[in-house]
């Protein structure tokens, strides 16, 4: 019990000593923290962008709509019946029937090809149904489309999910690239902290030697440096979170402007709390790890003479 308390006291002292040590050289410490912050802000920021692109993609309900062209000889009553049948399906949200006569009129009015159309005998346009499935997921949309294709009156189902699939694939690729960048930059952070701790060890070699001479164990000598690495990582991650938040704040107005142009209520999402916690904890762990590597490599070399 007593030794546990002693242990905890020592740790608290090391923790505070390390913080004091950082504060005593504000310029050098801030530079290191800033380098770590930038290295961490990069993957964190990219992740925010990918998350937002994913949210944008999901919010694109219209992407699930598809057009059904009925056979040219299907009567208006028959078309209405087919529309009702499809609309009655449990996996379909609604069906809009575009009557071929009305479509022709509209086309004539809007396209300016009126005279060319008059040269044709009869209406070349078929009845068209616009189907909105309940679910936007690619598989569900495909299932509805397949059912509609089986109806004898159907001529052609125009399913434009290819671009959605392509977008999804690109998002997945982007996500994977962000993962890779995260790993590389995590390694960079470990190296930056490790190198900083190595310099710190060198500048404190006299102290290390004295502590070894009066019986300090490797663990005792190592701990202050581990805490130093911990603080570097923690501070760097905190600063990274601030950088990402500031960048999002700067991007917010133009994004809102674009969204308004497209009549969308889309809003930039920031880093969710869970990811902020992950970032900060990850930063602290990386700092600790960097310090651990540096001490493992360099402390043994300093022996009393």
């Amino acid at each position: 019990m007593d030794s546990l308390r002693h242990y905890l006291t020592l740790h608290r002292q090391n923790l505070l000593d390390a913080l004091r040590r950082l504060a005593s050289q504000p310029f050098a410490s801030s530079l290191t923290v800033l380098v770590i912050a930038i290295a961490l802000a990069l993957p964190a920021g990219l992740r925010v962008l990918v998350n937002n692109a994913g949210a944008l993609n999901d919010s694109w309900q219209g992407a699930a709509d598809f057009a059904v062209y009925l056979k040219i000889d299907v009567s208006t009553e028959n078309a209405a019946r087919v529309a009702r049948a499809i609309g009655g399906r449990p996996d379909v949200a609604n069906v809009t029937l575009i009557d071929r006569a009305k479509a022709l009129e509209e086309f004539r009015a809007k396209s300016g090809f009126g005279e060319a159309l008059d040269a044709l005998d009869g209406n070349p346009l078929p009845h068209t149904l616009v189907v909105r499935p309940k679910s936007g997921a690619a598989g569900d949309v495909e299932a509805v489309a397949a059912a509609v294709r089986a109806i004898p009156e159907t001529d052609l189902v125009q399913l434009d999910t290819a671009w959605v699939t392509r977008l999804r694939a690109m998002l997945a690729l982007a996500g994977r690239m962000v993962d890779l960048a995260t790993v590389l930059l995590a390694i960079a952070v470990t190296i930056v902290v490790g190198n900083t701790i190595r310099l710190e060890i060198n500048s404190r070699s006299v102290e290390i030697e004295v502590v070894k001479l009066v019986g300090g164990s490797d663990g005792f000598i190592r701990r202050p440096f581990l805490y130093l690495g911990f603080w570097y990582g923690l501070a760097g991650a905190g600063a990274a979170a601030v950088i990402v938040a500031a960048a999002l704040l700067a991007l917010e107005p133009p994004v809102r402007a674009v969204a308004t142009l497209y009549g969308s209520g889309f809003q930039l999402a920031g880093l969710p709390l869970r990811e902020i916690v992950l970032l900060v904890v990850g930063g602290a762990v990386l700092g600790w790890a960097g310090a651990w590597l540096a001490t493992a490599r360099h402390l043994k070399a300093i022996e009393p003479k």
């Binding site: 004295v210 502590v211 009066v214 019986g215 300090g216 005792f220």
Partner: peptide, 24 residues
Amino acid sequence: HKLLHDRSVFDNVALPLVIAGASR
């Protein structure tokens, strides 16, 4: 002497005791 010059006299003398885990 091998004293630590960034610490007080007290902390220097206390060092081996801290290492040994003595109470405050």
